[in-house]
Design a protein around this nucleic acid. Structure first.
Length: 125
DNA sequence: TGGGGCTCCCGTCATAAAGG
DNA sequence: CCTTTATGACGGGAGCCCCA
């Protein structure tokens, strides 16, 4: 298992392409969401689709069906959690690089301001 | 070198929100 | 109203680093 420190890259960011958690509602203003409704996906490998519930009778069969449903739900949620974390990581990375870009931009503006101040300030002699 | 702290990743549960 | 999906919260395992 690899562990790498978060490196802020100087990658360029597409303005307004960031995604924000849909949970964080209006408070964040125009932050777009990073939640993307997944299209109906095919069942991951290993999932056995049982016969229709209509054909079940005995308590044992019902219990098996319940167990199967639970396992299916857990598996789907497991995948959903992975995907969710992946998106969130990407989102955070995106924010971090944006911060880096804005910091550089800010520094440049401050320098420019200082230059202009120098130029415009009345000569005190 | 053993142990504690830190960080990362994972699985599960609870729940809000969306959709039918 | 019920089901499904996304996500926050929580707890646990594992790797890495540092220190006594």
């Amino acid at each position: 298992m690899q562990k790498t420190g978060m490196a802020v890259t100087g990658d360029e960011i597409d303005e307004e392409t960031e995604l924000a958690p849909s949970h964080m509602t209006a408070a964040t203003g125009d932050m777009p969401t990073y939640q993307i409704r997944a299209p109906p996906t095919a069942l991951p490998q290993g999932v056995v689709v049982a016969a229709s519930p209509g054909s079940l009778h005995s308590p044992q069969q019902l219990a098996e069906e319940a167990t199967r449903k639970r396992e299916l739900r857990l598996m789907k949620n497991r995948e959903a959690a992975k995907e969710c974390r992946r998106r969130k990581k990407e989102y955070v990375k995106c924010l971090e690089s944006r911060v880096a870009v804005l910091e550089v931009q800010n520094k440049k503006l401050i320098e420019e301001l200082e230059t202009l101040k120098d130029i415009c300030s009345p000569k005190t002699d």
